[in-house]
């Protein structure tokens, strides 16, 4: 009898409680849902120009980065000038309320910036901001 009770006790112990694991997986799911849909990162770091009047762009979720050597980065990959417009069109369809911030490196050429801004406008997003950092201490 004692051995049987011991056996039944062991049987209860070996049952795995799935509830915490489910919670955990559920949390992970929510976490990834939220993080992936937020900001379309450009994928590289650029030296931003400083501006005192720069304001936070609440809907600026699509980032396009321009490097000094003329490379264009968006959505974590390097794109060609001709790819900017279709990519913007696709992102604009997915989330129509998003606006674009073009983060141009300090040393990037203004001609490239203007060209990219034109492509974005042709892609359907009319509100374009030029990325900057708030000047410190002001």
């Amino acid at each position: 009898m004692r051995s049987r009770r011991h056996a039944s006790h062991e049987g209860e112990d070996t049952g795995i409680d799935l509830a915490p694991m489910l919670d955990f997986v559920f949390n992970l799911l929510i976490f990834f849902l939220i993080t992936t849909s937020f900001v379309r990162e450009a994928g590289i770091t650029v030296v931003r120009p400083e501006a005192t009047t720069a304001l936070p762009e609440q809907t600026g979720n699509i980032l396009v980065a321009l490097r000094p050597n003329g490379e264009i980065w968006m959505d974590r990959r390097q794109v060609d000038m001709r790819e900017v417009r279709p990519t913007i069109e696709r992102l604009h369809l997915e989330r129509p309320e998003d606006t674009v911030i073009v983060i141009a490196d300090k040393a990037a050429k203004a001609g490239l910036l203007a060209q990219v801004m034109d492509e974005i406008k042709l892609g359907g997003i009319k509100e374009v901001a030029v990325g900057a950092t708030s000047a410190a201490g002001q």
């Binding site: 993080t35 009047t53 720069a54 936070p56 203007a114 509100e127 030029v130 900057a132």
Partner: peptide
């Protein structure tokens, strides 16, 4: 962790200058 990432994601806001073309 979840709450932390939600909060930081909201705070990471790009600043920019809205310009016309």
């Amino acid at each position: 962790l979840l709450i932390f990432f939600i909060i930081t994601a909201v705070f990471v806001k790009e600043v920019g200058l809205r310009v016309e073309r």
